[in-house]
Every structure is written in structure tokens, then in C-alpha cells.
Nucleic acid binder design. Structure first.
Lengths: 256, 256
DNA sequence: TCGCGGTAAATGTATGGACATTAATGGCAG
DNA sequence: CTGCCATTAATGTCCATACATTTACCGCGA
């Protein structure tokens, strides 16, 4: 309700383009100016439809775009929660496809090199998404094109203690861990954060992968979440020449 | 129409979950087995609705998911074109937001270090998305936090000859090039490909950025496309410690 | 031959309604 | 106090329908 800067009268009737796009712009401006604070629930579809004098369908289109753009998160039975006041790289995907999306894990084989229990210190807890003092299992391994084939990546994985009993299953597993853990423990995995960065290849990884000192790695840190927290955190080191991340960003037509 | 492997009878009535999801799975399997080849047009919404004995709305939901997953591309007046037989990292976004998405370019300043004309050889043509033999302008520069501030990245940009006249505008520009080119030339930019990889920091970049030899870079190759082809290709080298790419991948609830 | 305009066909936008599914809530029984 | 259950409210799914907008295409005229 700030009186300043109100050149944008809050009606979807001005401007051009589809109505849902105009409503979307209004809602975005409200998100930015704090009308709908982060963490709060936005008005319901019915309320917004009434406010903008339009149908629920049109409001849903606007909200769908806000979801795809990473501003809000919607849950059946709950509502529309504000998660950001600016767009995010957020990628929505069905689960089976998600597994295929992480190309490297599919049709490749994992070999466990080393396993140990660790108590999380503060720094490690932050990385894996756990709490300091908890006991987790740390697994070192290498992913291969095929058993006895060419090594692809060095992987360090962390799982909470309650999943430790499934770790032996990792040995020789084809595919991603998270699907294995999910099927064995019946804990559904809802989302995954991924952080891509560049880093020197760790010394141990150089040995396992047969690389010269000074090798460069594309480093992928992934945290797989169930509703109760992180189920697996893994850090993958891929030789820089062997992996790159391609994205295709497409402009929505007609919204200039 | 392969007779083998036909455990999936092609009706959406089996299985559980929403009907559009079942239809989506059937369509995905057809994409994979070549029933709808890459480059071809899929049946229209009306035809699919008739085949699956459902409404156009439900078919649209299935196709919307295929679009978000990167299998197909839809154009009003044309149809649904198959662009891939497996899911892709495809990110749809409005344009204003896209600029914000490429965080680094916003509220930073670009300084041109060097400009020259180059004739594309075959390898370079492939990288920038042009044709061998064409003349492009190559621009070297550095992006800074503020004029005279801290250097953030070394950037090598290529623009086709017809845009060369706008290159002087790059000097001291705040924001991304593509928005500058777009506003000056009135050529709308539809999409952007991005490839993220790890690489050694080029020697020239080490000098410009004041880094020690052996520094590691997160390398971003971007191609901005208009309908007529690549408008800008740029390769950015960021010090590995200063940049990472975070993604949030969310599972569609209720599709196990 | 070239360009212009009309037409058909496809997706895009929008309405209004109905019912399903999920999640929080509060009350009741143990 | 705890646990189960009915209620309520929100989004999710689905229908039939209409019109708008974009694109490809064909034919006509200059």
C-alpha cells in the first residue's frame, strides 16, 4: 500500500496482451514491493479471480507462470506460498524423467571404494543439509561406463544414519542412488537442489580416475530431499572435458 | 507400430493418476520409439483428444508437460513439433526476468579491452553458431562490479557483421549485451542456449582479472538467437570461487 | 514472376461449471 | 493427553464451448 511509485494502477485492464499476463505482472510487482511477503500465503484463486473480475482459469494461468518462474510454490489443500521476490532457476519435472535428466547416472555403474561413519561438524552439516552432531555415513565411489570399463566420475555421498543399512546396495548399482533408496525405504523424494561449480580435481579422484595432477573438475553438489529433510547429499567430480551442462532458455512469445 | 515390447497397450484407461499424465506417458513412449520422429509434427490436439476419447483440455495438459520437459515445441498456427526423444533442461521464462536470471550482468559494468574483425573458420563457426567464411566482430572485455571496482569475469563476444555498428555502445554498458542490441536494432531475441563447463582460466583472462597462473574458471558459453540466427555468442570465464550455478528441481507431486 | 490478400487450420486465451484430492483443523472418544 | 475422524478449504483435474491469434498456403492480379 505504499503511496509512492504507483504509476501501475492495479487493474489488468490496461496495457496489451493476454489478461493472465497482465495479472501476472501485477502480482509480480506486489511480490517485489512486499505486499505478499516471502513465506506467506497469497490470496486464493477464488479471491484473485474476484478481485480482477475474471475466471479462475485466467488466474491459474498467471499463477502457473509465477510458479514456473520460481516466485511461488503451490500445494493442493494448502495454497500458494511465496518463496522468492525474484525469479529463480527452477525446474519442474516428473520423476522418471528427472532420473534421465541426470544423464550420467543412467546406464552407468557405481563401485564403492570406501565407507565410513562421520559425525557432522558445522561446516559439513551446512553442505549436506543436516544438523551438526548427527551421524551420517560417507561413501566414496567411482562411476563407470560399465563394470571394468572407463571411469567417469568420483563421487562422495552422504546419507543419514537411518539409511545406512541400504548403503551396501550401492555396490555395483546401475542408476542413481536416490531411486534405489526411494524404492527400498519407501521414502518419496520431492526435490533436488543442484549446485554446479568448477574446482580442482581432488587428489584422491585423480588417482581413482587415472588423471594427471592439476586436472580440472566440473563439480556437482546435489541434495535430494524428502519431506523430512535431506536423504542423500552427493558431490560428483567429473573431468572437465567429459561433462558440460547445456540449457535452453526460451522466451515466452508475445511478452516483450 | 513395432510389434515387440508392447506391454503398454496404448490406452489411457489403465494405470493410476490423472488422465493427462497417462496420456503423457503414452506420448513419451511414442516419441522414444520413433512413432513421432524428431522434426515432425505430432497429431493435433483435436486428433489426440479424439484418439484418447477425452477433451482438448486434457490433451493440452499432457502436451504442456511434454513442452516443459523439452520433448516438443508448440507454435500457434503451426502445431506441435518434436524436438527431442528424451527430456532436456529447458527453461521457459519471460524476457525481463531472463535478464535478471543472468545475475552477473545486472548492475555490473562492461569495459571493452579489444575489438577486431574475424572470418569464421569451421571450428569457430560451430561454436558461435554462424557459417564458415562469414565475418564477425570479436570483442574482448571485462565485467566489473562498478567502474574502477573489482573485476568479475573475462568475456569474449562475437556478433555478426550487421550488428558491428552497435559494438561501441558496449563500452561502459551496464547490463547484458543482448538487451542493448535488441533495443537498438529492434531484432527480438527468442531464445538462448547456455553451456556450462569447467576450464582453465585463459592466460589473457588471468592478466585482466589479476589471477595467479593455474586458476580455474567456470566457463559459460551463451548463444542468443533471433528468428534469423545467432545475434550474439559470448564466452564468459568466471573465477571458480566466485560463481556457481544453483538449480532447484522439483518433482511433480503424485506421479510416481 | 512477384506480391497481396483471403482462407483454412492449428494453437492460444477465456468462460463457467463440476467433482477429486490433499492438507490443516478441531472435536470427540479412548 | 493422545489418536482418530469428520469438516472445511484450498488447489488439482476435467468437461463443453467459444472466440482470438498466428501461420501456412493457395490463388489472383499486377
Amino acid at each position: 500500500m505504499s503511496a509512492q511509485d504507483d504509476t501501475t494502477t492495479q487493474t489488468p485492464d490496461e496495457g496489451t496482451g493476454p489478461r493472465y499476463a497482465r495479472i501476472q505482472k501485477i502480482l509480480e510487482s506486489r511480490l517485489r514491493d512486499g505486499t505478499y511477503p516471502v513465506g506467506s500465503l497469497m490470496p486464493t484463486e477464488i479471491e484473485l479471480a474476484a478481485e480482477f473480475d475474471t475466471s479462475r482459469f485466467t488466474v491459474r494461468e498467471a499463477l502457473r507462470h509465477l510458479t514456473e518462474t520460481g516466485f511461488v510454490e503451490r500445494r493442493q489443500g494448502l495454497g500458494t506460498r511465496v518463496i522468492s521476490t525474484e525469479p529463480q532457476m527452477r525446474y519442474s519435472q516428473t520423476f522418471d524423467s528427472l532420473q534421465e535428466l541426470f544423464q550420467v547416472a543412467v546406464e552407468t555403474y557405481y563401485v564403492v571404494m570406501h565407507t565410513e561413519e562421520v559425525v557432522l561438524d558445522k561446516a559439513l552439516a551446512e553442505v549436506v543439509g543436516g544438523k551438526a552432531g548427527e551421524t551420517w555415513t560417507r561413501v566414496e565411489g567411482v562411476r563407470w561406463t560399465e563394470p571394468g570399463g572407463r571411469p567417469l566420475a568420483f563421487i562422495e555421498s552422504y546419507v543419514p544414519a537411518r539409511f545406512a543399512k541400504y548403503v551396501p546396495e550401492f555396490q555395483g548399482h546401475q542408476g542413481a542412488f536416490f531411486s534405489l533408496l526411494e524404492s527400498h525405504s519407501a521414502v518419496p523424494i520431492d526435490e533436488c537442489e543442484q549446485e554446479i561449480s568448477a574446482a580442482p580435481m581432488p587428489e584422491k579422484a585423480q588417482r581413482y580416475l587415472g588423471l594427471a595432477p592439476g586436472a580440472i573438475a566440473l563439480q556437482l553438489l546435489r541434495r535430494y530431499h524428502s519431506s523430512e529433510g535431506v536423504v542423500i547429499a552427493s558431490c560428483n567430480w567429473h573431468p572437465a572435458e567429459q561433462l558440460s551442462y547445456k540449457m535452453h532458455i526460451k522466451r515466452n512469445r508475445g511478452q516483450g
